[in-house]
Amino acid sequence: TTVVVGNKKYTFDNPEAAEKFAKKVAKKLGATVHKTNGTFKVK
């Protein structure tokens, strides 16, 4: 599962961990999490 934050990509074996990370980053940046085909995008 990939999490994309700006131009950085983070890969997780565990989708739950990926989602948690994405939400944490989004909260910090005041952004939102978008899920597309198993990829979480923070923007």
Results as ranks from 00 to 15, higher is better:
residue 1 T to S: 11
residue 1 T to Y: 14
residue 1 T to P: 08
residue 2 T to I: 14
residue 2 T to K: 09
residue 2 T to N: 10
residue 2 T to Y: 13
residue 3 V to T: 03
residue 3 V to K: 00
residue 3 V to Q: 01
residue 3 V to M: 01
residue 3 V to L: 02
residue 3 V to Y: 01
residue 4 V to P: 00
residue 4 V to W: 14
residue 4 V to H: 10
residue 4 V to E: 14
residue 4 V to Y: 14
residue 5 V to A: 03
residue 5 V to G: 00
residue 5 V to L: 06
residue 5 V to Y: 04
residue 5 V to F: 05
residue 5 V to K: 01
residue 6 G to N: 06
residue 6 G to C: 07
residue 6 G to P: 02
residue 6 G to F: 14
residue 6 G to H: 08
residue 6 G to E: 04
residue 6 G to I: 07
residue 7 N to P: 08
residue 7 N to A: 09
residue 7 N to T: 11
residue 7 N to G: 07
residue 7 N to E: 08
residue 8 K to Y: 11
residue 8 K to R: 11
residue 8 K to Q: 09
residue 8 K to A: 10
residue 8 K to I: 08
residue 8 K to L: 09
residue 8 K to N: 09
residue 9 K to H: 14
residue 9 K to A: 10
residue 9 K to T: 14
residue 9 K to Q: 11
residue 9 K to F: 12
residue 10 Y to H: 04
residue 11 T to Q: 12
residue 12 F to L: 03
residue 12 F to C: 05
residue 12 F to G: 00
residue 13 D to S: 14
residue 13 D to K: 12
residue 13 D to Q: 11
residue 13 D to H: 12
residue 13 D to N: 10
residue 13 D to E: 11
residue 13 D to I: 10
residue 14 N to S: 12
residue 14 N to V: 08
residue 14 N to M: 07
residue 15 P to N: 08
residue 15 P to L: 10
residue 15 P to C: 06
residue 15 P to D: 10
residue 15 P to I: 10
residue 16 E to V: 12
residue 16 E to R: 12
residue 16 E to G: 10
residue 16 E to K: 13
residue 17 A to P: 04
residue 17 A to D: 10
residue 17 A to Q: 10
residue 17 A to C: 06
residue 17 A to Y: 11
residue 17 A to K: 12
residue 18 A to R: 00
residue 18 A to S: 02
residue 18 A to C: 02
residue 19 E to A: 07
residue 19 E to M: 08
residue 19 E to H: 08
residue 19 E to Y: 14
residue 19 E to L: 13
residue 19 E to D: 05
residue 19 E to Q: 06
residue 20 K to C: 07
residue 20 K to A: 13
residue 20 K to S: 11
residue 20 K to V: 10
residue 21 F to N: 00
residue 21 F to Y: 07
residue 21 F to Q: 01
residue 21 F to W: 13
residue 21 F to G: 00
residue 21 F to L: 03
residue 22 A to S: 04
residue 22 A to G: 02
residue 22 A to L: 02
residue 22 A to Q: 01
residue 23 K to W: 15
residue 23 K to F: 15
residue 23 K to D: 13
residue 23 K to E: 14
residue 23 K to S: 09
residue 24 K to S: 10
residue 24 K to W: 15
residue 24 K to G: 09
residue 24 K to N: 10
residue 25 V to D: 00
residue 25 V to Q: 05
residue 25 V to S: 03
residue 25 V to C: 04
residue 25 V to H: 03
residue 26 A to V: 02
residue 26 A to Q: 02
residue 26 A to E: 01
residue 27 K to C: 05
residue 27 K to V: 09
residue 28 K to N: 07
residue 28 K to V: 08
residue 29 L to Y: 09
residue 29 L to P: 02
residue 29 L to N: 04
residue 29 L to Q: 04
residue 29 L to T: 06
residue 29 L to M: 11
residue 29 L to V: 06
residue 30 G to H: 07
residue 30 G to T: 03
residue 30 G to I: 03
residue 30 G to V: 03
residue 31 A to C: 05
residue 31 A to M: 14
residue 31 A to F: 09
residue 31 A to D: 03
residue 31 A to P: 01
residue 31 A to S: 06
residue 31 A to L: 14
residue 32 T to W: 05
residue 32 T to A: 08
residue 32 T to D: 05
residue 32 T to C: 07
residue 32 T to N: 06
residue 33 V to Q: 01
residue 33 V to E: 02
residue 33 V to Y: 06
residue 33 V to T: 03
residue 33 V to I: 09
residue 33 V to A: 03
residue 34 H to V: 15
residue 34 H to P: 01
residue 34 H to D: 09
residue 35 K to S: 08
residue 35 K to V: 13
residue 35 K to W: 14
residue 35 K to L: 14
residue 35 K to Y: 15
residue 35 K to R: 09
residue 35 K to A: 08
residue 35 K to E: 09
residue 35 K to F: 15
residue 36 T to V: 15
residue 36 T to E: 15
residue 36 T to Y: 12
residue 36 T to N: 09
residue 36 T to M: 12
residue 36 T to G: 09
residue 36 T to W: 09
residue 37 N to Q: 07
residue 37 N to V: 04
residue 37 N to C: 04
residue 37 N to W: 04
residue 38 G to H: 07
residue 38 G to Q: 05
residue 39 T to N: 14
residue 39 T to Y: 13
residue 39 T to W: 07
residue 39 T to Q: 15
residue 40 F to P: 03
residue 40 F to S: 03
residue 40 F to W: 14
residue 40 F to D: 03
residue 41 K to Y: 15
residue 41 K to A: 14
residue 41 K to N: 15
residue 42 V to Y: 02
residue 42 V to P: 03
residue 42 V to L: 06
residue 42 V to F: 04
residue 42 V to K: 01
residue 42 V to M: 03
residue 43 K to L: 15
residue 43 K to M: 15
residue 43 K to Y: 15
residue 43 K to T: 15
residue 43 K to R: 10
residue 43 K to F: 15
